[in-house]
Design a protein around this nucleic acid. Structure first.
Length: 422
DNA sequence: TCTGGGGTCCTAGGACCC
DNA sequence: TCTGGGGTCCTAGGACCC
């Protein structure tokens, strides 16, 4: 048996932990650049606010209902996530951290699963302040479904155990096929067209049909709904395939030098990520684009070039990465466009020390990694951008908007919560 | 008029996830 | 004026090889 433990409205709940005044107030958290809504408290959902809804479109509604609005604070959410995972690891030896707010637990050999599920839920609540839901079933897909059921139906008190077909079959019959894990909007449309509306109907489709229309992935999902495990618990993350850093700008950019600064700082971030995981990259993709939402396409045309190339040698040395990225940028840049976003993707990754040595490699890689290590250390200790490349710009006029960010209560001394006796 | 077959590697695009 | 960011997996089709 597997458990899926999932934090309820994770980002919104994190904000609430440190500000009790928010307890019964609707809360929403915005994406980068305060662009759209990415998390909603229960009360905010009840107001009809949708996931992914652009902020500017619902601003008035938010004001009217006195909704508490936050820019996203990833330092806070990341730290709270770690706390939750640490608690979960006390309950089971094998835990797969699936995302920032959910984990699968291997419960083989455990007895009285409903009682265990309630204990997990209460302990996380008590030790971190965060509400979670627990779903238990023999496969990941069913555990997801159980979790979803526990979350959406108050009668379950946040816990749902589906350990026999007699328990899950009636639920499958009630469950919308589009809400099944692994079935997105496209497949939902296709399935509905063929008269498949419930998870139960889907789970009974013939293998050949599934393979033909939804590939092996769809066939696996159906099997999992029948209680046949196809997806293993992934206990050790395998080698990363790629690292991407991209951002929308706080305002449109037209100048080459500003693009250069933005790209250089994203590439620096990508370099940090590589080094943190002791990886080297060989391949680079640089991309940029103007707004796809432009009202007047004649005045504000869409332009979205990208350049993908192999670097001569594997590297994680930021100046080298910046060099190739800026060269690509220069090649793609056309004046007269209003750029909205750019980014870099590094692929062909290899753990440090496993790359083949090149006879003609003239780089002093020892010196380079010492320099990078020193820089990373300073930035980790003193805050990001304590040390940075001048090419990334000293005054970043294009940087992101985060007008409503809460303090980083748990990771920054300045953000430490203050309690006053009166 | 008929125009092989099978393998591998790469890329682009489409689907999904949080 | 204002629409996020970072991933994974699968398949089809083209290039190339023998």
């Amino acid at each position: 048996m597997l458990a899926l433990v999932d934090c309820n409205n994770f980002y919104a709940s994190c904000e609430r932990v440190f500000d009790p005044k928010l307890k019964h107030r609707p809360v929403v958290v915005l994406s980068n650049n305060d662009g759209c809504i990415v998390a909603r408290s229960q009360e905010a959902k009840a107001l009809g606010l949708q996931m992914g809804e652009p902020y500017f479109k619902v601003k008035e509604l938010l004001d009217r209902h006195k909704v508490a609005v936050f820019s996203s604070n990833y330092a806070l959410y990341g730290d709270m996530s770690q706390r939750v995972m640490t608690v979960l690891q006390q309950f089971a030896p094998d835990v797969e951290i699936y995302s920032i707010d959910e984990a699968f637990l291997d419960l083989d050999g455990f007895r009285d699963l409903p009682e265990l599920a309630r204990t997990i839920r209460e302990t996380v609540r008590q030790w971190t302040g965060l509400p979670v839901s627990v779903g238990i079933a023999p496969t990941k897909t069913l555990a997801k479904l159980a979790n979803d059921t526990a979350k959406k139906n108050p009668g379950y008190n946040g816990v749902c155990v589906l350990d026999t077909p007699e328990l899950w079959k009636p639920l499958l019959h009630e469950f919308e096929v589009g809400d099944v894990w692994g079935i997105g909007p496209q497949y939902k449309k296709l399935l509905n067209k063929h008269g498949i509306n419930t998870a139960l109907q889907f789970s009974q489709l013939p293998e050949t049909w599934l393979r033909k229309h939804m590939s092996v992935v769809g066939a696996r999902t159906a099997k999992e709904l029948r209680g046949q495990p196809c997806l293993e618990l992934e206990l050790h993350a395998d080698l990363k395939k790629g690292i991407t850093v991209s951002r929308s700008f706080g305002k449109r950019i037209t100048e080459f030098t500003e693009l250069e600064q933005a790209l250089a700082s994203y590439v620096s971030r990508a370099g940090e990520k590589l080094r943190r995981e002791n990886l080297l990259a060989k391949h680079m993709l640089v991309f940029m684009h103007t707004s796809p939402f432009a009202k007047d396409a004649a005045k504000d045309p869409y332009y979205a070039p990208s350049l993908s190339f192999a670097m001569p040698l594997h590297t994680n040395y930021t100046p080298e990465l910046i060099h190739y990225a800026l060269r690509a940028l220069k090649e793609m840049y056309r004046p007269g466009y209003r750029y909205m976003k750019c980014g870099v993707m590094l692929t062909d990754l290899l753990p440090e020390g496993t790359e083949t040595l090149d006879l003609f490699d003239r780089r002093d890689t020892v010196k380079q990694s010492k320099l990078m290590a020193a820089m990373d250390q300073v930035n980790q200790k003193m805050g990001t951008r304590t040390l940075f490349y001048a090419g990334a710009g000293i005054r970043q006029k294009w940087s992101m908007i985060a007008a409503r960010k809460s303090p980083s209560y748990t990771t920054d001394w300045q953000g430490l919560i203050q309690v006053k006796a009166v």
